[in-house]
Design a binder for these strands. Structure first.
Lengths: 203, 203
DNA sequence: ATACGTGGTGGAACGTGTTCCAAATTATGC
DNA sequence: GCATAATTTGGAACACGTTCCACCACGTAT
């Protein structure tokens, strides 16, 4: 078995294999985007990516792994993009809210995709720990980066900072689930996040 | 269709129907307790509750409805039990933590059950809104009750109180998911909750 | 008492995630 | 180039959630 840990994107595999892996994630992305969680059917993904079903399962041992990996790729991209710029805002709360709203806007632009990825994330069990960890890291990194104003002084991260970022991430995740599952509107979600961030980050 | 809204426990149905409903929820509970989410198989629930599969689906239109209803029943019970007593602790944070730890202990005693109910809750979509609402209400009520020290002055609930309780509930849910899915240990979860509550409730 | 209608029963059937396997293809060491 | 191992393929098969249907049981109005 040569494909051991597909969660870290850089390592492993011949170029043909990296190609296949990318095709699979792209197909997942497309299907999720147009039809949400239910539309990401393993047979459809395989067909779309032009691999056999067995191969798909060799690369991603379950639908959940597949979707969470796709989510990880997306979060990584988002984190990378955000790290390139300074975050506007005069205090931590404003900057964090700026970033969260930015991400929320992106997600609301692709509700089906967001639904698929969020559901998968919430449903994942410990066998998906690696992939989940990637997502959690990206999330925390995004929030702490915003807290610090986008300055590259990332080394100044205290435990306190990380704890705060994790709490905000938790609230964000819950709010996301509520929105994704149709239990609250985008506006309610935004208001709730605003309240929460001000509660947690009282500069 | 006479069984319209089984989420509010009091209404509807002949005694034979209430009986059936209870048997179904009990069977769900037992199966979840011993085998978790995967063990709650609709055929097994039906057999255990001694009803036909079709009948089960008439009472609960999906596995998710079923599990979330079971969760609602459990939260209601927990809320009722907690409302009967005074909550020890000198400030809001202590009291809330007391309650959360109490609930956590209960849940850790039945990890499989907790896993089943939490997964279902996270996976529920808008068609389960009623049942979800019951759970959310119970959760908020538990936290606000703790904040106010168990005094029956529940009328003094401000919007602020409710918002705070909802944020705490969010963090709790995220922490619960992390624990249930094996991404964090019970101790980590407890520490995280402690941190979060102190962050949010600085008396 | 009888007929009617609502709800329950038993079981077949379908869709989709997942597993498995033999054959075909590709990669690797000599 | 060839032998051998590893990977991919195509497709069958299985499990479980869900749907459907023909039939039965029981309470109620006439």
């Amino acid at each position: 078995m040569s494909i051991a840990n597909p969660s870290t994107s850089d390592d492993l595999g011949s170029s043909a294999q990296r190609e296949r892996r990318k095709r699979i994630l792209d197909a997942t992305y497309e299907l999720a985007k147009s039809g949400g969680f239910d539309a990401v059917q393993m047979r459809a993904v395989a067909e779309h990516a032009d691999v056999a079903l067995g191969t798909l399962y060799r690369y991603f041992p379950s639908k959940i792994h597949l979707l969470v990996s796709a989510l990880g790729r997306q979060f990584d991209d988002a984190a990378k993009r955000l790290h390139e710029r300074e975050i506007p805002g005069d205090n931590q709360a404003d900057r964090v809210l700026y970033v969260l709203k930015r991400m929320a806007r992106g997600m609301q632009g692709d509700p089906k995709l967001t639904e698929a990825l969020t559901r998968a994330f919430m449903f994942a069990d410990s066998s998906v720990a690696n992939e989940i960890h990637v997502v959690g890291m990206a999330m925390t990194s995004i929030v702490t980066h915003a807290m610090h104003g986008g300055e590259p002084a990332e080394d100044a991260l205290t435990d306190e900072d990380v704890a705060i970022a994790r709490v905000i991430g938790d609230v964000w995740l819950s709010a996301l689930v509520a929105w994704v599952t149709g239990r609250s509107t985008a506006a309610e979600t935004a208001a709730h996040m605003e309240k929460a961030v001000h509660l947690i980050l009282r500069d």
